[in-house]
């Protein structure tokens, strides 16, 4: 055994020993983790291969003599041989070029990462999970979901307790405020276009004899159209309110919404189109999904019960 091989073996042993100590001394060691095991295997392979390669080339430097045809030019006395391409090198070069073309034309375009792609996958997965989990949600759970959506989306105008924050938005603890009823009777309404395309005409106050009669009707509507109030019921008919909102204000499809209380259909209709009334403008909330709209509607309905 000559000196070179001995030096190589000693170097390899020292390096491997250092690796052993380093891994053994670390917290948890290999920890059974595939990445840790691969990293250490790589380090061991690197030490052994390096030692072998260095031994080979040092030997070559000791014994080799230059041969072949020199190129014409030299750089500060350093020349260059015009040797044939080594076959192995040429094969690797060619292989890399072929792989490069495949990667450029097929590999990257077909498998490339895209942020929007990831977003679409995330959204689809989330929506599917949401659908599966809440497909048959109802009752108290639906109301609880509605409350959480309400607190995220609606509270900035309607307030934490849905009281409308001092008239900045509708107080949802009762169906309609007096001012709003008065406003729509005089000015009409053009809301909920999807479900009630006709809207409400203006000037319905002229159906009533005087202010007092109008006030009585408005009070009757605000009170939720109680059956005990027969005079109010008569005025409701006199103003032709019943022809669109139904005899007891229960609403009529395509004609007029329910006004004797909230229900899911009415609230969803407002969420779909937004509305503009005596208080101000409410934007549409089309970004809520159908289940969330149903939930908010159930929550709002539950508030005034």
């Amino acid at each position: 055994m000559n000196k070179l091989t001995l030096a190589g073996i000693i170097t390899a042993v020292v390096m491997l020993g250092a690796t052993w100590l380093s891994v053994g001394g670390s917290k948890g060691g290999l920890n059974g983790d595939i990445v840790n095991i691969l990293a250490v295997a790589g380090a061991v392979a690197l030490v052994i291969i390096t030692v072998f390669v260095v031994i080979k080339y040092v030997r070559q430097m000791q014994t080799d003599t230059a041969s072949g045809k020199l190129a014409d030019e030299n750089w500060d006395g350093i020349g260059e041989y015009k040797n044939e391409l080594p076959a192995g090198w040429a094969f690797i070069m060619l292989g890399t070029m072929i792989w490069g073309m495949w990667y450029f034309l097929v590999g990257y375009p077909v498998n490339a990462y895209s942020q929007i792609g990831e977003y679409n996958e995330d959204s689809a997965a989330h929506n599917a999970k949401f659908e599966a989990k809440y497909a048959s949600i109802q009752g108290d759970e639906l109301v609880a979901m509605g409350e959480s959506v309400f607190l995220a989306e609606c509270k900035v105008c309607h307030g934490l307790t849905a009281d409308g924050i001092d008239g900045k938005a509708a107080d949802l603890n009762s169906r309609i405020a007096k001012a709003s009823v008065m406003h729509v009777i005089m000015n009409g309404a053009n809301n909920m276009k999807t479900d009630f395309p006709g809207g409400m005409p203006m000037g319905l106050n002229y159906s009533f004899a005087d202010e007092a009669e109008l006030n009585k009707l408005v009070d009757y509507v605000v009170a939720g159209l109680p059956e005990s109030d027969t005079e109010g019921a008569q005025l409701f008919e006199k103003g032709t309110c019943n022809s669109c909102h139904g005899a007891h204000g229960e609403g009529m499809a395509f004609a007029g919404p329910k006004i004797n209380g909230f229900d899911v259909a009415t609230v969803s209709s407002v969420l779909k189109d937004g509305k503009k009334g005596s208080i101000g403008t409410m934007p549409a909330f089309s970004r809520l999904n159908p289940k969330q709209i149903e939930a908010v509607s159930a929550y709002v309905t539950s508030l005034s019960k």
Binding site: V156, K168, T281
Partner: peptide, 17 residues
């Protein structure tokens, strides 16, 4: 998702809404 009257309230006194 916000309207003129909301901005009006909010710009005057954000904490109110």
């Amino acid at each position: 998702y916000r309207t003129t009257d909301w901005h009006e309230n909010h710009m005057k006194d954000p904490v109110s809404v």
